[in-house]
Amino acid sequence: MNKLNLILAGVGGQGILTLSTILGQTALAEGLHIKQSEVHGMAQRGGAVVSHFRFNDQQPASSLIPRGRADVILSLEPIEGLRYLPWLNENGMFISASSEVKNIPNYPETKQWQKEMNKLPRKLAVDAQKIAKQGKLRKGANIVLLGASSPYLKLREESILEALKKQFSKHGREIVKKNLALFKKGQQLAAS
């Protein structure tokens, strides 16, 4: 049985919905059944945003993942993912960007969230922002993380790449190429 529960977390404007769309199209192309929950409306204005994403051979019932049952948390911002730790399962994988979005006055010390993350049995921190900048795609951190998480997503690489191409094709070939490169970079980081 092919089945996955994933939580995507971040700050409004970081590209959570884009990731969610790419994953949805990938799973659909693989003939899987999908349920995903999104945050729309006011919270998208720079606030905390979360998306639950599930696929299964049969239609998943709930669009929200119950506590303790997420296989992967993928976070575009370090403290945003930590909010959802109660949803991670015992062997769950926690993958987070390390670049902070400090649009709040009381943002914690870097050490503090690093300490929390280090307590987890399976985790990976990725400087996705830096890699995106190097790849000359300022808004591409979400795709770097998609690459880094791809070994844990139980989806075929070709299908993800196909969905990636489809998602960005309206922005031209150059953008598609840059995104594919960022995905590969992320993938390499996960393997190293």
């Binding site: 409004g12 303790g68 959802y84 015992e90 649009n103």
Partner: peptide, 20 residues
């Protein structure tokens, strides 16, 4: 029971929506 295996860190600040 839906069991939480990990707890949310204490003192994690909220991030309310804000003007762009």
């Amino acid at each position: 029971q839906t069991t939480a295996h990990f707890s949310k860190p204490q003192d994690l600040p909220g991030r309310p929506p804000r003007l762009c």
